[in-house]
Amino acid sequence: MQVNNDVRTRRHCVFNLHVHLVFVTKYRRDVFSGRVLIDLEEIFKNVCLDFEAELVEFNGEHDHIHLLVNYPPKIAISNLVNSLKGVSSRLIRKKNYPEIKNKLWGNMLWSRSYFAGSCGGAPLSIIKQYIEQQQRPH
């Protein structure tokens, strides 16, 4: 796979797809410390590599995290999210962080919901205008 100015190529397609993901902890509990966020970032990078995606940006606060992921078109966002949340929950709980263990019980780190927003590229109004200006044959 080649990377050139954020445009990635495959055998039969050229793409530049980004998604902004937000995951919230179960019950919106304040459980993330700086140490946990560092570990989460590394876990997310590795999961993205397994999907041939790239974690472009990562940050978070005590009860939620934000990810910006560049991904190939063959990936369903829901599959990527399920893997990111499942693997990170399992590996973070395995490390036995007391701040998490004391505030969350069971095997749940994340809320079942998430936010996914497409981003990058030109604004929709510009793309719409470009499509409208195509020379349609009569």
Rank of each mutant, 00 (worst) to 15 (best):
V3T: 10
N5R: 08
D6E: 15
T9F: 12
T9M: 09
R10C: 15
R10H: 07
R11C: 13
H12R: 11
H12M: 09
C13L: 06
V14Q: 15
V14N: 12
L17R: 09
H20P: 01
H20S: 05
V22Q: 01
T25E: 07
I38T: 15
E42T: 11
F44H: 15
F44R: 00
F44L: 13
N46G: 06
D50I: 02
E54K: 10
E57G: 01
G60E: 01
D63L: 04
D63P: 11
H64D: 10
H64P: 06
I65L: 12
H66R: 12
L68W: 03
P72W: 08
N79F: 13
N79P: 02
L80V: 03
N82S: 14
S83M: 09
L84V: 00
L84G: 01
L84F: 05
G86K: 04
V87T: 06
S88P: 04
S88M: 02
L91P: 01
R93L: 14
K95R: 15
N96R: 14
N96C: 14
N96V: 07
E99Y: 12
K101S: 10
K103C: 08
L104D: 10
W105I: 04
G106T: 00
S111D: 10
S113P: 04
Y114G: 04
F115Y: 10
C119T: 12
I126M: 07
I127S: 05
P137Q: 05
